[in-house]
Simulated scan of single mutants.
Amino acid sequence: MPKTTIHHPLAQQPAPPETLTRLLAATGVTINGHAPWDIQVYEESVYRDVLTKGTLGLGQAFIEGRWDCKRLDEFFHRVMRADIDEKMGGMAKLTLLGEVIRHSLFNLQAPHRAYQVAQQHYDIGNDVFEAMLDSSMSYSCGYWQHASTLEEAQFNKLDMICRKLDLQPGDRVLEIGCGWGGLARHMAKHYGVQVVGITVSVEQQTVAKERCAELPVDIQLKDYRDLHGQFDKIVSVGMFEHVGQKNYAIYFATAHRLLKDNGLFLLHTIGNHKTALHTDAWIDRHIFPNGKVPSASEITQAIEQKFLIEDWHNFGPDYDRTLMAWWDKFNRAWPELQFKYDESFYRMWKYYLMCCAGYFRARQGQLWQLVLSKRQSNRVYRSMRPLPVS
């Protein structure tokens, strides 16, 4: 990303406008207060940017060092719990309207745009992700019920997926959005299946191929709409957020076409507490371009007459814990990473992880795993969860 000038604070912090003070009153957040979740505003321009650009202005001002907060995760938790982020968007009507129009009129996830998110986010540098993630390089929510470390939580998540899919030796499995190959490797190594994994990231494909070199795993650089063949099982982890509402029909139609009649499809996705007409402007600009988090009703409408829901598992609070574990690892690795990335990148990455943690802590964000089957299936599916540790 381009270099950003980090602004230095003024000698005296500017007083906030009454509009923002009144808006934050219900959250327990005080501008220039003394609590760890209170924000410290160093430049008056912050207020103008928040009032005119909403969350986009707030996030950009943080990257530039014009405001700060000791417990950024708790700031976001309190703001989102009271839905202040949505009210901020209401004040910045022109910015919000522009986002709504953009998402409504254009297919932001059309095939020619499919690789943009990889180029901007997933291909920034494997060193960042290697430092932040566990050894499997799982860039999705861990399952913490019987885990005390990130490594355990991600292993348990991968294994739970395999058991929910009832993987059997010799199964041919399609993974839509295979990341750096962690799940593909786990499925092939521990369950004896053959895996075809697809990604739109050149960097991910390179690493995944290396990690799965000795296993029956084929990693392809491909958009899901270009897939052909038949599979016993299909799994997609943390990719559906990049599909977009305009493409839900073709996404599920493609999965239906590729899945054998007696097969199972596991969809692992972030979910929003309500249907939204657009994604957060800051996240869209700086982290995941063209993304869209689905609501429950959007998913159920899209799968109607295509799939039956065998199981719907929500463990959204586990994403909060996962994100905080990622932040801890990234922050500890920063002394080495800082030779390649500047301070603006550090502040952007902190803002990204902390605002996402607040999103899940406030329960605006959910984490869903759905197990889907065709109506033609004659299997009897029994929902499963990991048994308590004895």
Rank of each mutant, 00 (worst) to 15 (best):
T254R: 14
A255V: 12
A255P: 13
H256D: 11
H256R: 07
R257I: 00
R257D: 11
L258F: 15
L258N: 15
L258W: 11
L259R: 08
L259W: 10
K260Q: 12
D261G: 12
D261S: 14
D261Q: 11
N262Y: 12
G263K: 03
G263F: 02
L264D: 02
L264M: 02
F265Y: 15
L267P: 06
L267M: 11
L267K: 04
H268F: 12
H268M: 07
T269V: 15
T269W: 05
I270G: 14
I270P: 09
I270L: 15
G271D: 04
G271M: 04
N272S: 09
H273V: 00
H273L: 02
H273A: 09
K274L: 04
T275V: 01
T275S: 01
L277D: 13
L277P: 14
H278T: 06
D280K: 07
D280M: 05
D280S: 08
D280V: 04
A281R: 13
A281Y: 00
I283M: 13
D284N: 14
R285F: 08
R285Y: 08
H286Y: 15
H286D: 01
H286E: 09
H286Q: 12
I287H: 14
I287R: 15
F288L: 03
F288E: 01
F288Y: 03
F288Q: 01
P289M: 05
